[in-house]
Simulated assay, not measured.
Amino acid sequence: MNIDNRFINELVRIINGALRLDIDKVRNYTSFLAEKLESAGDKSSADRLRKLLDEADNQLRPADVRFAKALPVDAESRFPLIEHVKLKTLQEPPLQLLQTQWDVVNEFVSVARSYASLDNPELSGALSFLMYGPPGTGKSRLARHIAKELGLDLYVARLDGLISSYLGSTSKNIRALFDFAAKTPCVLFLDEFDAIAKLRGDSQELGELKRVVNSFLQNLDTLGRQSIVLAATNHETLLDAAVWRRFTYRLALQLPSPEQREQMWSDFISPILFSKRDLTVLADLSEGFSGSDIGEVCARLKRRYFSTNNKPLHLKDAFPVLQNLAVGGEYGERFVARLANKDVIAIVQILRERNQRLYSLAMLAELLGLSKATVHRLSKREGGE
């Protein structure tokens, strides 16, 4: 009998749950296998599996109880500890990564597709991936991309919400979180990871938080090969050395390069607003911006565009928005922020010195909303041509 390799992982997980007498795990992965079979065109087999689940429900549980994935909640507040991200309806521009970064991501996805079914005693523990770098550099989007590629549900745990004011409750929350991941076919994404995985040697932290780190490490170690764990942090220097060792894949994400920024502008906005020449200028002016920052600028410009009955936008409309959103930010120096408090003469000088070919007199006139003659006169006053 030939079995499609796409379904081996789910069969292994179902058998694993049955051997452990874990009925929830068997149900969850059987339901997930039925979804995959139906997506592959085998509706008959999918219906047979769902019928088995319904019959088992009627035999082992009250008639009014139906199969559902109950999300873990905080024991005190009853707030959910995780959030289910609906990937099927989510539309996002493509990620902009360097080829070396894509190599790491693609290797992880390739291994994750078959990891649970590999028959090798040397392989143990959950497959894990740590992303780190400045805010807005694509960590959450990359988590969504990986889950989509694997065809798995994505559950996001915001770890600052796991920390309870009640002694010992945080460790219980972590246990509930990992119990859910062990029984459910999903990608578990630990966002704001540094909230829990801080250095145990930090003398300013309470003993409870240090115990929480130990609890996290123990729970991560007990996860089987059927589990996939992603984590993200903006403050990698706060992570305990033992935490680093638990993640078999690691990826640093930086602020985008000029080429990446130009592509981001193109993905976010150019089809309706800006030319290729404009994109090059916008990419240069947005030095120091993250991908999320550029997306925010584009969203603001598009709101203006649609609220003015599609009145054409120009570079002079984008320039003040860039300056406005450049203020603040913990990471990197945003070039355009240095122009915020300058007069027009100084701005002309700085941009001409930065790249005279890119910032021609005509381009500066368009960018600043001035006539070309005025820009020419200002550049002369500043010792220009």
Rank of each mutant, 00 (worst) to 15 (best):
G17F: 02
T30M: 05
S39L: 15
L37N: 02
S45M: 13
L19E: 12
L49G: 06
E10W: 01
L52S: 14
R13V: 05
D42I: 12
E38A: 14
N28R: 01
E38T: 08
L21D: 07
A34F: 05
V26C: 01
I14L: 06
R27D: 07
A40I: 09
Y29W: 00
R48L: 15
D42S: 13
V12P: 01
D42F: 07
Y29F: 02
E35I: 03
T30K: 02
L49R: 08
D42M: 08
N9A: 15
N28E: 06
A46N: 14
T30H: 01
R48K: 15
V26P: 00
D22E: 06
A18S: 09
G17N: 07
G17C: 03
N9P: 08
A34W: 00
V12R: 06
L49M: 09
E10A: 07
I14R: 01
L53A: 01
N16W: 04
I15F: 10
A34L: 12
N9G: 07
L11D: 03
G17Y: 07
L19I: 05
L19V: 11
D47C: 10
S45C: 08
L52P: 07
A34C: 10
A18E: 06
N28D: 04
G17A: 06
L52K: 13
Y29L: 00
R50T: 12
L19P: 01
S31L: 14
N9K: 05
L33P: 00
D22A: 06
T30W: 00
F32E: 00
G41Y: 13
K51M: 13
L52M: 13
R27Q: 07
V12S: 02
S39A: 15
A18Y: 00
